[in-house]
Design a binder for these strands. Structure first.
Lengths: 340, 340
DNA sequence: CTGAAAGCGCTTACAG
DNA sequence: CTGAAAGCGCTTACAG
């Protein structure tokens, strides 16, 4: 299978490169190229397995039919699912997607953005580190199509698709309150992400609605990079008098995992002694002991909506499309909070 | 931030495009361009945020500094981890990686391979559907660098990095046998993948070593696309007389998930009534009730080794490198098999 | 209906 | 040390 180029086809068939290019791009009819010629070209191309060199095509057209997806980490199940759905949807619309992980490093995120621009992606979907306003604003300024997902910059006017973190966490906390729990710990990440901030606000709002005093000692903020080591002391302190929590809400699936592991190590009975609820989940959370009541994020919806908005903008179709979306999450009640 | 091109730099600095290109590619010294000129060029480029157009560079050099990774499904935790490690390792060696999911469709896999070739990737890492020998052999024939991971074609002489499926499954089965279980069911996938075949052989070999008769009724082979619906009857039949298994080994993590879910639904006590062991695992398998004894795959090692072999071949360095690797898995004993 | 030609933004012999 | 020029494989006005 020797590589075949446009030129080869043209020579063998005694037509011009122009004709071949036109026909293969479905512009044969509009350029009034004879059906006969079209057929010959198409058949020859198929027979010899011709596929255009995307670099050349992209360079020539200043387009690449490619979009970029920048996420913190492709290994995380939440983001890998997003990636899967983005790939599927984009492909359906005729685009290839380029993935890359920033590993929560704003500098790397910047490099990735530039690297993707220089690969001529036509648009970007970004789950930003949210410490990179500079690059985001510069995209904005260049009127380059992009949409933020999962994390957005509230101070900047951009397209985004996020989940309603405030109400998601609030609902989770209310669930605990309705079951009679009153001393509710909150294990979350150090502030920095808007999503994380919103989750804390949701927690507080639920307490307020139930007339419960907000105590800072019940909030444990771990570092994204070191939470595995910090979880032990966080839980220990929450369990100790005068805190003595009767429940904990975890603000991410991985905090729930390490937290539950730690509770088991300490032989704390869940939910009898401590009820728990998780924001976001892992595949096996319904099999865990006890099955974990979780706030489920609409992963597929996030991905599809983001691709829709992006490609709509790239192709400049519907200018009236709502390009700021806050999607609802859903509380899946299982057994980690006990029952009424 | 207006885009700046080679030509712009050359004009502003009153040097030739050649000089700029050379300097920016670290070929300034070997072409004896004055330090002074080099410094001016480098500073100007940095100041104006110059990044070369990869399409143009790639087209010109016939290279892209890109490798492709084709996997069945980026949403699967096993493959998303592979993807994460491949990306990391490749980046360290100066390559970008292009991901794509075949969704177990051999035809799509072929399209992906062609699409990646035409994006001028310099090498490919493929977790193949294993029903696409044609394309694999054609890569081989063209001496195009590639390495198969996770799944390989035993009938074809290629680079590969796989896990020792035979011994992994054998060890798992032996573990059950050593604990006194004798009626061991095996829930696996319909044959097709070499890995799956090897796992069945491992199961059989363990039985043979313990002088236990192999019974076909104890093997349940589900379809990859429909296992969620087939699991119920598979388990029902395994539990029913005359099968009445006392243990089950699952040949993939997702079979374990649905299987355990089904066992719980049927109120079967694990491990008392039925012990289970899983080939490959999910993040929360140590939190599941009971924590699941699992064969752990060396994900990071698979990824790193594959990238090493591939890039070594691309750059034609060490021709003596062992390019067929069978890595060991490890049995992580938890509680789903009970104790002695 | 079709072909010659310019151009996309680079790299790289080659000549000086 | 440096510059003019060809070339990578396409696309796309433009002229006929």
């Amino acid at each position: 299978m020797k590589k075949v180029f446009l030129k080869d086809i043209a020579e063998k068939l005694n037509v011009s490169k122009t004709a071949v290019s036109l026909v293969l791009n479905n512009k044969g009819d509009e350029n009034k190229i004879s059906q006969e010629t079209q057929k010959r070209i198409i058949e020859f191309a198929k027979e010899h397995n011709y596929v255009p060199n995307q670099l050349a095509r992209g360079l020539s057209r200043g387009k690449s039919e490619t979009i970029g997806l920048i996420i913190p980490n492709i290994s995380d199940t939440f983001y890998s699912k997003i990636a899967g759905y983005v790939e599927l949807k984009a492909k359906n619309l005729g685009y290839t997607v380029l993935f890359s992980s920033s590993n929560e490093d704003p500098k790397k995120e910047g490099e990735l953005i530039r690297s993707m621009l220089n690969r001529q992606v036509e648009g970007l979907i970004i789950a930003s580190t949210q410490q990179n306003l500079k690059d985001i604003q510069s995209l904005k300024q260049d009127k380059f199509p992009f949409v933020l997902i999962d994390r957005h910059y509230p101070e900047s006017d951009t397209n985004y698709v996020v989940v309603d973190n405030f109400n998601g966490l609030k609902t989770a906390t209310e669930h605990l309150l309705q079951l009679g729990r009153r001393k509710i710990g909150f294990i979350t990440l150090k502030p920095g992400l808007e999503a994380i901030k919103q989750r804390l606000l949701g927690y507080q709002s639920a307490l307020t609605d139930f007339d419960i005093e907000y105590k800072e000692e019940l909030i444990k903020e771990l570092s994204p990079g070191n939470y595995e080591n910090e979880i032990e002391s966080a839980i220990r302190e929450l369990l100790k008098f005068p805190n003595s929590v009767d429940s904990i809400v975890f603000s991410t699936h991985y905090l729930t995992s390490v937290g539950l592991r730690e509770l088991k190590r300490k032989n704390v009975k869940v939910p009898q002694e401590v009820a728990i609820v998780s924001f976001d989940e892992l595949t096996a959370f319904d099999l865990v002991d006890p099955p974990i009541t979780s706030v489920i994020q609409p992963v597929k919806d996030i991905a599809n909506t983001a691709v829709d908005i992006l490609i709509n903008e790239i192709e400049g179709k519907d200018s009236a499309m709502d390009n700021k979306r806050i999607l609802n999450s859903k509380l899946e009640i299982r057994k980690s909070c006990g029952t009424f």
